[in-house]
């Protein structure tokens, strides 16, 4: 049984915010191309409807790189059809979007290995090597 139209949840409409964000991205990409200055735009703190975000996603498109990150839930990261413009979508354990950003950079920060993690990994790897030598 379907609900009467008056009782169905509202579908947030297009408000025109995607145009404004697109202009900002274009301007910040110019800056990045000329000076290397990086920018992060937080899409969830802007008064955008879901339709606005979908519109922006379609207009930026998907480029050559797509990455999946499995940390505290999944994250989907892709470079848009505009080099240097990355879409970063963090998804939580329930499959809901927890955060969504546009990163204007060569590589989004979250993809780089942190020195502390690298140090811990080096210690762990050295431990494995020592154990294997002892076993031999």
């Amino acid at each position: 049984m379907s609900l009467p139209e008056s009782l169905t949840p509202c579908t947030p409409p297009l408000t025109g915010m995607a145009d404004s964000v697109l202009s900002e991205i274009a301007e910040r990409l110019q800056v990045f191309a000329l000076s290397g200055e990086e920018t992060v735009i937080d899409l969830r703190s802007l008064p955008m409807s879901n339709a606005d975000r979908n519109d922006l996603e379609v207009r930026l498109g998907r480029g050559e790189v797509e990455i999946k990150l499995y940390v505290s839930g999944q994250s989907d990261i892709w470079e848009t059809t505009f080099a240097g413009v990355w879409w970063v979508r963090h998804i939580d354990g329930d499959g809901r979007i927890a955060a969504e950003e546009i990163n204007i950079t060569s590589v989004p920060d979250i993809l780089r290995a942190h020195p502390d993690d690298a140090r811990a990994a080096a210690t762990r790897l050295a431990g494995i090597n020592t154990k294997e030598s002892d076993d031999v």
Binding site: S72, A98, D116
Partner: peptide, 9 residues
């Protein structure tokens, strides 16, 4: 630290 970054984002 990636988990930290995701959380703080």
């Amino acid at each position: 630290r990636r988990a930290f970054l995701k959380f703080t984002a």
